[in-house]
């Protein structure tokens, strides 16, 4: 039994070699030696390996499929559920402590009569944020990711039936505090909000391009502290614009309330 481990040639070429020119050199992939490529003729190979002539060849199959296509499909289902009940979903992503929960609470108090909000809280383990939100009378479903660094679409799918979707207009999903992983996982929401904050520094868009590239709107929270932290708004904004030239960048403060009306106005116009 001859098993040719790997071919760098196309099927057609290979077949012509197997059937035709037995002395032509070909390449094999040698498992023992990692990526080493050996070139020798099929005749040599068969001489070495006796007379049995079962040849396994490698075939390259084009796939071109998004790695997270399964997640993307569930996200699409979620989107349909939300669209079906006319709910606008927002995926709130930020570092730990940037002010996601604060921003959600401040947004809630500024929504006009008749525009209701509910929340999905993604958290590594605790339910502290969910309790804060429930205490304000906001419907909330807690998802503990149990150490997982991001929410995914199936977690949202499980949470949706537990929310009063018929009674609300806006769903805020507080993702796990993390500037890397959540950006890869679509949830089915309509808008990605990235909440930066001045204590994190103005270089974040340069260091976490994946996250800022995913943003539909960027809020810069804790702007009351911008002088304390020497936060350079122009520099920060230039980083975001390299990736997303047209994304709105809105400085806010959940402490003083600055910028929040502007954010809520933008949200109501763009939902």
């Amino acid at each position: 039994m001859v098993t040719i481990e790997h071919y760098n040639v196309s099927d057609a070429q290979l077949l012509s070699r197997v059937i035709g020119d037995i002395d032509a050199p070909y390449q094999t992939f040698d498992r023992q030696h990692g990526l080493g490529i050996h070139t020798r003729s099929l005749a040599d190979y068969w001489n070495l390996s006796g007379n049995e002539r079962t040849v396994s060849i490698m075939k390259k199959v084009d796939v071109i499929q998004a790695i997270l296509s399964d997640n993307n499909a569930v996200a699409e289902e979620n989107r349909k559920v939300l669209d079906g009940v006319g709910v606008f979903g927002i995926n709130v992503m930020a570092s730990p402590g940037a002010g996601k929960t604060s921003m959600i609470l401040e947004t809630f108090t500024r929504l006009p009569e008749g525009t209701k909000l509910c929340v999905v809280e993604g958290d590594l383990a605790s339910s502290l944020d969910a309790e804060l939100i429930a205490n304000k009378g906001i419907p909330v479903v807690q998802i503990n990711t149990g150490g997982g660094c991001h929410l995914d679409a199936s977690m949202i799918r499980n949470a949706l039936p537990r929310l009063p979707l018929d009674e609300i207009q806006i769903l805020m999903v507080e993702n796990v505090g993390n500037l890397v992983c959540p950006a890869n996982f679509l949830l089915g929401t309509h808008l990605n909000v990235v909440v930066a904050s001045t204590p994190e520094g103005h270089d974040k868009p340069f260091k976490y391009p994946g996250m800022f590239n995913a943003a539909d709107v960027v809020l810069i929270n804790k702007f009351d502290l911008s002088e304390v932290f020497d936060f350079d708004l122009e520099y920060f904004s230039s980083g975001v614009r390299m990736l997303k030239p047209d994304v709105p960048i809105i400085p806010i403060s959940c402490r003083t309330g600055a910028g929040l009306d502007e954010w809520v106005e933008w949200l109501l116009e763009n939902r």
Binding site: L15, T54, M58, K59, K60, V63, I64
Partner: peptide, 17 residues
Amino acid sequence: GMEFHVESIDVEDDVGS
């Protein structure tokens, strides 16, 4: 720079005998 997919796979395919 945001690409994120499986391009192709190499599979075993039996020919000859």
